[in-house]
């Protein structure tokens, strides 16, 4: 039994034109047994950064609180919100701190980065469970359905998708990938982040 498959769950993030999307399933399991169909894995870190935490459920909760604490400390010291790239390094170092007894989480993050000109640039990143960062330009995936997510995303994704097209691409990728994964599924949620609003949509999925 792999500890990464103990509770199941998957997350994906994608880049679009002046927008990003991040989506996860809602299943919490105890190996093959489904426990909950309302277990959130994506959390807002700032107004424009969302973090997905697929992996061991107890560590999902712990890390969510750890990052809340660390971001509060950052805000107090710096008197400003953290930028996505800085946040990615915060995630990385937090995980690497436990290099030889890791958190069993593979974080995925998505956000909008403020450029010097005042515009917003899409940002996504993911790390492995000990904090090795992957700054991808297209999409990042993690969780028990990761190989399926890679396959579908590689087929569906294209550059410069408008927000609603990005939502559809991201939702379809997630839904079809988790339907082929026994440890993921049981509903899904998608966050679509644009410069002036964040839209959260909860999706119906197959319940088998």
């Amino acid at each position: 039994m792999s500890i990464m498959e103990y509770n199941g769950g998957s997350v994906i993030a994608m880049v679009g034109k002046e927008c990003v999307a991040i989506a996860s399933d809602l299943r919490l399991g105890n190996q093959a047994l489904g426990i909950s169909s309302n277990f959130q894995k994506i959390f807002p870190m700032t107004d424009r950064i969302y973090l997905g935490l697929p992996g061991l459920a107890t560590d999902v909760t712990t890390l969510r609180d750890t990052f809340r604490y660390r971001l509060n400390m950052y805000k107090i010291k710096e008197e400003r919100e953290i930028e996505p790239e800085t946040f990615a390094h915060l995630v990385s170092s937090t995980l690497y701190e436990r290099r030889f007894g890791p958190w069993f989480i593979e974080p995925v993050m998505a956000g909008l980065e403020k450029t010097p000109s005042g515009a917003y640039k899409p940002f996504i990143a993911a790390t492995d469970l000990i904090g090795c960062i992957n700054f991808a330009k297209d999409f990042v995936v993690a969780g028990t359905a990761s190989s399926k997510l890679f396959g579908v995303a590689e087929g569906l994704w294209e550059p410069d998708l408008e927000p609603e097209d990005l939502f559809e691409t991201c939702a379809q990728t997630l839904l079809n990938a988790v339907d082929r994964d026994a440890y993921s599924g049981w509903g899904a949620e998608v966050y679509l982040i644009t410069k002036d609003k964040v839209i959260k949509r909860t999706l119906k999925g197959r319940m088998d």
Partner: peptide, 19 residues
């Protein structure tokens, strides 16, 4: 080797799953 990458894509594009 790439069954897990391709099959869900086919579910979507051939069987129109989730559409």
């Amino acid at each position: 080797a790439a069954q897990s990458l391709v099959q869900p894509f086919l579910d979507n594009q051939i069987y129109f799953k989730n559409q």
